[in-house]
Computed example of a mutant assay.
Amino acid sequence: MSGKVILHYFNGRGRMESIRWLLTILEVEFDEHYLTSRDQYLKLLNDGSLLFQQVPLVEIDGMKLVQTKPILYYIAEKYNLHGKDIKERVTINMYSEGLMDLMEMFITLPFAADPKSKLDSIQSKANERYLPVFEKALTGPLYLVGGKLSLADVLLLECTLMLEEKLPGIMKEFPSLKSFQGRMINIPAISRFLQPGSKRKPQPDEGYVKTIMEVFNITRPLP
């Protein structure tokens, strides 16, 4: 299992996309093994590869890691994007968990019984609970924590771009966040990742939803 990082997930964003973003900005090469059938998923289960019977699964440094947050924190720690001390680290984690809470709403959106109502809820929470926090944190500083790039910055860029895909214009009241976006997308690795043909995944479509429901044997929309 040594060598190149291997990602096991669907050919879509979901809970793996943040991991792709982080590896990309670090310029860490990775291969992807896509789940396309229930038999593939059951094989991973039978092999003992899925600690809690869930993906994402990431093979790295001779380990098989599951659960998105621990995977992100491990990679960030390994490549010095997790703060210089325990206080910076906990601040990065707080920002990161808030962003992942918001992005989780997008991850489940394609499976919702009432997507419009859910999107309205996302917009409200983003405007009232999440974006003001980051606008304040970036009024002056270039990065969220310690004056240098961290995991939280990578997740913030991913999240704000995701918001704008579904809710154009949502960032107009947050000028510091827009400036932050502009700085981040000029980082060469990110600029390449945002181009067609990169390993960045498109917005979920019906085929992606259908594959996940078949692999996990889901028979009805989520509430």
Score class of each variant (00 low, 15 high):
150 S>I: 04
69 K>A: 12
28 V>Y: 02
54 Q>G: 07
190 I>A: 07
139 T>R: 06
90 V>I: 15
174 F>P: 00
88 E>M: 12
142 L>W: 02
137 A>S: 11
194 L>R: 08
183 R>M: 08
55 V>S: 04
8 H>K: 07
22 L>V: 09
179 S>K: 12
220 R>A: 13
15 R>P: 08
83 G>R: 02
190 I>Q: 06
51 L>R: 07
165 E>K: 05
84 K>C: 02
50 L>H: 04
122 I>Y: 08
180 F>S: 01
163 L>R: 00
171 M>T: 00
76 A>K: 01
69 K>N: 12
125 K>G: 01
46 N>I: 02
65 L>Q: 04
160 T>S: 08
205 D>H: 13
161 L>P: 03
165 E>V: 11
139 T>Y: 00
71 I>N: 01
216 F>A: 07
87 K>I: 06
29 E>K: 06
202 P>A: 07
33 H>R: 14
4 K>G: 00
10 F>C: 06
94 M>N: 06
100 M>H: 07
213 M>R: 13
15 R>C: 11
201 K>P: 07
187 I>E: 06
68 T>N: 13
149 L>W: 08
183 R>H: 13
21 W>M: 02
219 T>A: 03
200 R>G: 06
160 T>V: 15
145 V>G: 02
37 S>L: 10
44 L>F: 15
106 F>A: 08
164 E>H: 01
125 K>P: 00
41 Y>C: 00
97 E>N: 15
16 M>A: 12
23 L>K: 00
179 S>V: 05
216 F>L: 15
144 L>S: 03
130 Y>I: 13
191 S>Y: 03
154 V>Y: 02
68 T>G: 09
180 F>K: 00
83 G>Q: 06
100 M>Q: 14
17 E>M: 04
61 D>R: 01
32 E>K: 03
43 K>V: 09
53 Q>N: 15
222 L>W: 15
222 L>V: 14
80 N>F: 05
84 K>R: 09
104 E>S: 11
181 Q>K: 15
131 L>P: 08
79 Y>T: 00
89 R>A: 15
3 G>W: 02
81 L>W: 04
82 H>M: 13
66 V>H: 03
116 K>N: 13
16 M>G: 08
31 D>N: 12
117 S>G: 13
9 Y>L: 04
66 V>R: 01
72 L>M: 02
105 M>T: 11
219 T>I: 11
109 L>C: 09
194 L>N: 09
69 K>S: 13
112 A>H: 14
20 R>H: 12
173 E>H: 09
141 P>W: 03
43 K>E: 12
10 F>E: 07
198 S>L: 11
148 K>P: 01
8 H>N: 12
172 K>H: 10
15 R>I: 05
22 L>Q: 06
38 R>W: 08
196 P>T: 07
103 M>Y: 10
43 K>H: 10
9 Y>A: 10
4 K>I: 12
108 T>M: 12
101 D>L: 12
6 I>D: 09
36 T>N: 09
